[in-house]
Write a protein that binds this DNA or RNA. Structure first.
Ligand SMILES: [Zn+2]
Ligand SMILES: [Zn+2]
Ligand SMILES: [Zn+2]
Ligand SMILES: [Zn+2]
Lengths: 138, 138
DNA sequence: CTTGAACCTCTAGTCACTAGAGATTGTAGA
DNA sequence: TCTACAATCTCTAGTGACTAGAGGTTCAAG
């Protein structure tokens, strides 16, 4: 049995974040000492590691909730889990796509001015004022 | 002179968002009718288009504030504008990098299970529980 | 037994909006 | 000119995933 601070150290999840996860129902309410402090065991550690990993992979709290519920019922079909993962992957790909378009434009914009001139003639400012200067939609 | 709804239509920025920008100091306070409704002219339209475009490119409200201030002073050095653009580009590149790592892992995870089994044997859930299954840091 | 780090709860702030309530105004058709 | 109703107004609160701070209590080492 260890404290929230110890759990924090082991999982690299900040203490207030752990309490937040508990409040959101991701973590079961921890046991308490007689003085009302939280105490965790291996189960709590594994659960939080799962959450941490899923968050690192960009899953939302809501998605993680569903995944955990599934994990709690080993006999259920895992279809929902795959669905969530596939949808998360699609999300990530969509974001990459969008960001690549931005990168293209921002790269052009950045290169267009060395910062030595005055605001009036600045290509950065001109580019922001006029989307027509962009090479594509973004 | 046109209404906020008309401005919204022309710039594709939602009405409450326009009011929000005004509150944040990005848009000058608009003129008002005797009945207190906002009225805009070409200047307001151009300003909002600038904001919209910068937002589309991912600049923060704070960054846009600085850019607008620079734009208001045509004689000032534009160095800050270039700095902001370069830093935004770096941000975007960083995000792309991160997302590509996620994509790699998520793609592996998604492929690992067809959703036909049970939760207990699910590769998606196993992968989330164990970062060791990941091929890299992410 | 004392000290002080770690813990507790609760509220509020972050960012860039978005939604809704409840009241007022603008404008087009009768 | 009147009426209907869409559009506008202000204000407050909610979103997601935390983070910061106040003010108080508990744990554990020396
Ligand atoms: Zn410049
Ligand atoms: Zn553009
Ligand atoms: Zn599965
Ligand atoms: Zn991993």
């Amino acid at each position: 049995m260890f404290s929230i601070g110890e759990l924090s150290k082991r999982t690299k999840v900040k203490v207030p974040t752990i309490r937040y996860y508990e409040q959101m129902g991701l973590l079961a309410e921890a046991e308490r000492t007689s003085g009302n402090q939280r105490r965790y065991d291996k189960t709590g550690l594994e659960r939080l590691s799962f959450i941490r990993h899923a968050r690192d992979l960009g899953f939302s709290i809501e998605a993680i909730s569903s995944l955990i519920e599934l994990q709690e019922h080993p006999d259920r079909s895992c279809e929902a889990a795959t669905d969530i993962a596939v949808s998360q992957l699609a999300d990530v790909r969509e974001k990459i796509k969008r960001l690549k378009l931005l990168e293209k434009e921002l790269s052009r914009i950045s290169k267009g001015c060395d910062g030595q001139g005055v605001s009036e003639d600045c290509y950065v400012l001109a580019s922001l004022a006029d989307h027509e200067l962009c090479s594509r939609e973004h």
